[in-house]
């Protein structure tokens, strides 16, 4: 269900599943776009030489996925703040799941807090954070 107003939001509800585009080609395009044209974002073998399991998704792209998931759920939402902690690398070409759940609602100020988690295929948390959004 698409959220149109604060009264549509329920505490504890899961946001609809969102499948991020974690292909290496997309991560690489993103890294170049933002001027982070480092091998660790473009090439699995080069990343492995740096001690990583594979090429990484830039942290800010993970953050971008989380915001896109919120807009997908509530197109009218304005993100007031988002804070993410990068616990472990998100590896390109691996399947990841993005989870969002409503953990606070302030109807007076029309604010909703959402817990955000990026998990890999083993269910391990790679990125977590919270977002505060305004739903007019």
């Amino acid at each position: 269900m698409s959220i149109e107003s604060i009264s549509d939001v329920e505490f504890g509800v899961d946001l609809p599943a969102f499948k991020p585009d974690t292909r290496l080609s997309s991560a690489s395009t993103f890294a170049k776009l933002v001027g982070w044209n480092a091998p660790r974002f473009n090439d699995h073998e080069a990343a492995k030489k740096e001690g990583l399991p594979g090429a990484m998704i830039p942290g800010i792209l993970s953050q971008g996925y989380l915001v896109a998931m919120i807009h997908n759920w509530a197109p009218v939402a304005n993100v007031k703040s988002i804070d993410t902690v990068f616990r472990a690398p998100v590896i390109a070409d691996d399947d990841h799941t993005i989870i969002g759940v409503v953990t606070d609602i302030n109807e007076d100020d029309k604010l909703v807090e959402i817990d955000l988690t990026v998990k890999n295929s083993k269910g391990e948390t790679r990125v977590f954070g919270t977002a505060m959004i305004e739903i007019p």
Partner: peptide, 17 residues
Amino acid sequence: KKTVEYARLCGETAPRF
């Protein structure tokens, strides 16, 4: 051009982005 490409790669679909 950059903000649009940025939004597209993040998975945004809303016209405002």
